[in-house]
Design a binder for these strands. Sequence first.
DNA 1: CAACGCCTTCGAGCGCGCTCGAAGTCAAGG
DNA 2: CCTTGACTTCGAGCGCGCTCGAAGGCGTTG
Lengths: 132, 132
Amino acid sequence: MPARTTAARAGLTIAEASARTGLTPHTLRYYERDGLMLREVGRTASGHRVYTDADLAWVTMLTRLRATGMPIREMREYAALCRRGEGNEESRLGLLQAHRSRVLEQLAAVTDHLGAIDEKIGIYRGRLGRPA
Amino acid sequence: MPARTTAARAGLTIAEASARTGLTPHTLRYYERDGLMLREVGRTASGHRVYTDADLAWVTMLTRLRATGMPIREMREYAALCRRGEGNEESRLGLLQAHRSRVLEQLAAVTDHLGAIDEKIGIYRGRLGRPA
DNA sequence: CAACGCCTTCGAGCGCGCTCGAAGTCAAGG
DNA sequence: CCTTGACTTCGAGCGCGCTCGAAGGCGTTG
């Protein structure tokens, strides 16, 4: 275990990375196993993972993609493209744009459905003599 | 099988209900099995399901709840409340309002994440010399 | 009357995204 | 030196929401 509890060390333990990203250590290991990380996560002499700020930034991007509904499979593709280095920016852009437009569609659909649900709520409020 | 292909019959076959709701026959049966229907779906003499407009309207509501992320378990609760008849409008309203506010939170989160993804897209576009 | 096609029930299976537990290692503290 | 506790790997398990296939019934059509 590292000496200081939290400080300007070069890297973070998995527990710290977990705290900062909101993902559990289990999930962080799973993402790594599943080929979602940009580069190999560093290790201490004893084999413990060491997360850099760059790793955290990448994980944050992953959580954004996930939270907007991107399947793991596609995140893996994106990671693979990024890992391969320069020269495939077109593909990465395409992937992100496709995702973006799916998200927009989904936002519109959810908003629409929510409107209908709101009407239902309005009906119940009216029936309970409780306006607005 | 009914005589006319589509007409002003009192009810619809499962295939027609499927076509109108966008759910597969398998899923319609599954919802029914799972206690999500408001009332028992009618049957022909030979045991085939007959969907009324009321059934379709209810299924549409179900799809809206699902599409906004309500778990099946909760839809079942809501259906149970509705089935029990008048007197529990408070509970139904509470359930829908709770759902509504979760959906709003999720919309906000997705919108936020999308903003970050858009930034990334902007970076790639810039890098590819392709503004806006 | 045979064939076709859509329906029925039932239970099993699947893809996704985690989530967990067992068994072991290592470093620091008492 | 021994305990503690956070870490490691590995593979299995789980909850959700369908999805499917087998086996059989009915009723219109050629």
